[in-house]
Amino acid sequence: MGKTRNVISTSARLLRLVSLLAAQPSWTNAELADRIDVTERTVRRDIAKLRDLGYAIESDPGPWGGYRLRAGSTVPPLILDDEEAFAVAVGLCEAALGGALGGERAALSALLKLRQVLPRRIIDRLDERDAAFVAAARAEEPHAMPGLLLELAAACREGVRVRLSYVDWEGRGTVRDVDPYRLVHAERRWYFVARDVTEGRWRAFRADAVGGLRPLGHPVEVVDAPDPALLVSRSFGAGSNPPTETVPGKEV
């Protein structure tokens, strides 16, 4: 049992050491030892372990020499505390919705990857934020919540049929089983491209009109998939604010 505790303690200490090295350009051995509450000899051993793991850590000789992560080296696993992880996730939400980075799809993809590895306590905080979040949209601009966009993106990634709650252009609620394919951002709107299982054709559902979705556990085999961007662009030709566009296709 004592050996297990020692392994856990060493792992936690190494993560803490990486976090400190990433937080500022240089640390002396004494400073690191003080922050981690270990001896300077232990710091030297831990630095050697991190180097063996592939971390490019440079050091200067002498009692006042410092340790630092080498600039331009391969990016090591990113270590974030709770507040940092929450801040990054919120920032990616804002980028995905507002186009601040010029690439909303990249921001949403990064947010999806981050959310998959976040602890439950941080995900709960993000869900609470989404529930209280209100965006002042531009005139006639719809708004899809980040949490819903993540669910739609996850459905596309996992390739499992889902039951979709949707409000059509006449305000009527409908429930459809669909095979997810892609999320498309166009004309300041998000579209969910999926095959309507009942109708046997591809559709572009407006994400802001999706009320919710539930995975059905049926794996999707994509056959005769359309160009998702082209499918969405055709909807613009059908009207100024079309709810969906369809393309015939075989039933999967």
Rank of each mutant, 00 (worst) to 15 (best):
T39C: 01
R45W: 10
C93A: 10
Y55P: 05
L69M: 14
G66Q: 14
P119A: 01
A71E: 15
E83R: 04
T42F: 01
I57M: 09
L53W: 14
A100C: 05
D34E: 11
D34W: 04
A100M: 09
P63R: 07
T28A: 02
G66R: 13
Q116P: 00
L69W: 09
K49F: 13
R68K: 04
K49G: 04
P61M: 04
A30N: 03
T74F: 01
G103I: 01
I57G: 09
V90A: 05
F86M: 00
A110V: 07
R68E: 02
R105V: 08
L32S: 05
R105E: 11
L50N: 10
P63I: 02
E31W: 03
E58L: 11
F86C: 00
P76D: 12
R120E: 14
G62D: 03
I47C: 07
G54A: 05
L97G: 07
K49I: 14
G72M: 06
I57H: 03
R35V: 08
V38C: 14
D34Q: 15
A30H: 01
I57W: 05
L69T: 07
Y55H: 14
T39S: 15
A107L: 05
D46A: 03
V88S: 03
L101A: 13
D37C: 00
N29C: 13
V117K: 09
A56Y: 01
L114G: 11
R70Y: 00
S109L: 00
E40S: 14
A89W: 07
V88L: 11
A85F: 00
A100G: 12
D60Q: 15
K49V: 15
F86Y: 12
D34I: 08
V38D: 15
G72P: 04
A48T: 12
L53P: 07
L118H: 02
P77I: 04
A100Q: 10
L78E: 08
L111Y: 06
R68V: 08
L69R: 11
A107G: 07
E83T: 05
I36W: 03
R41A: 11
S109C: 01
A48V: 12
R44A: 13
G102V: 08
P61G: 04
E94M: 14
T74I: 11
R105I: 04
R70K: 10
R44E: 11
G91K: 02
N29L: 09
G65R: 02
L32N: 04
L78C: 12
I36C: 02
L69D: 07
E94L: 15
T28L: 02
A107H: 02
D37N: 12
A71D: 15
L108Q: 04
R35D: 00
G99C: 08
E84L: 05
E94T: 15
D46M: 05
A107Q: 01
G98R: 00
S109W: 06
T74K: 15
A100I: 09
K113R: 15
T42Q: 15
I57F: 08
L101F: 07
V43A: 06
A30V: 12
T42L: 03
R120Y: 00
E58N: 13
L78G: 06
Y55S: 02
R41P: 09
T42N: 09
N29H: 07
T39D: 10
L108W: 02
G62A: 04
A71R: 14
F86G: 00
G65I: 08
D37H: 08
G54S: 06
W64N: 12
L53S: 12
A100K: 13
Q116F: 06
S59M: 08
G99E: 06
P61Y: 03
G66D: 12
A100Y: 15
E83A: 11
